[in-house]
Amino acid sequence: MTPTPVPVLQVQDLRLTLPGTARPVLDGVDLTVGAGETVALVGESGSGKSLTSRTALGLLPPGAIASGTVRVEGEDTLTMSAARLRALRTGDVAMVFQDPRAALNPLRRIGDFLTEGLRAAGTKQEAATARAVELLDAVGLDASALGKYPSQVSGGMLQRVMIAAALMGDPSLLLADEPTTALDVVSQAEVIALLTKLRERFGTGLLFVTHDLDLAAAISDRVYVMYAGRIAETAPAETLFAGPRHPYTAALLASTPRPTAQGGRLAAIAGQPPDLRTTIEGCAFAERCPLATGLCRERAPEPLPDPARPGHLAACHHTDRLVAEGTPADA
């Protein structure tokens, strides 16, 4: 192994405040994606996972106030000039969205869509088309797709087109925001297979944002679990699923319906994630946590490393009790 190079994405102590909210939407997020690494960012809607990934492109919601750093290959996107940001978005960082149909102009051919970024950057039409054909081939589509309109192809195929488009600028970091949520399971597997293959081939770092813990576990090297704007737990994928150290992760795993499980009731997590209009004292999960004590409601837990497990951090006061008592049941 080569010595650790500069990570493609390094988020440190990212805080994001939106107008009209009582607490920061992102509250001290730390996250790293190494070169060629696949990292999954897991959370429910409103946890801030999409916001976090978008900061890597310098995309902030209107009126947002950000602090901390979001470094892409060492450069902070939060302080970057508009011109540099543009270059970053056309080159180093690319994004694949959840709904490919909504992300594509339905009136333009797929070929135009694929090549317009390169042509805008000054590449000749023939060269851009050649690159598009090469990438379509890489995602398993032939050149005939160039002349088609988005409405003429299926959702799974369209997502492949989106992935090809994302790779046009030869990015070092690919952000995939729930790229398979709109697809059925088989298409999902195909798109994942494709992403894995391409990551190996092009050495792209991949930040995979999803709500599906099992999917995250199956595809990534490392997983970050987010809750209410904070990182609850991070660990290498296998260790996280074999032994979660945060009650939220444990509860999520227990409440996921699986075809292999026994039928009947699930261990649902009671309540709902905290509203942005309320402030949080202490741990954000305390309200729904079966292990919560007075301490949890007073002081927010810091992410602490597990001495026995390298790279495993959990922000919980009661990690030891979780380990001793097992998975918290439905409260």
């Binding site: 399971v185 994942i192 099992d214 199956a218 595809i219 296998e238």
Partner: peptide, 18 residues
């Protein structure tokens, strides 16, 4: 069988499903 194999699980091989 394909549908079942497509559900992400430990040791999942998406390439095989494709």
């Amino acid at each position: 069988r394909l549908l079942l194999d497509s559900v992400p699980h430990p040791g999942w091989d998406p390439g095989r499903i494709a």
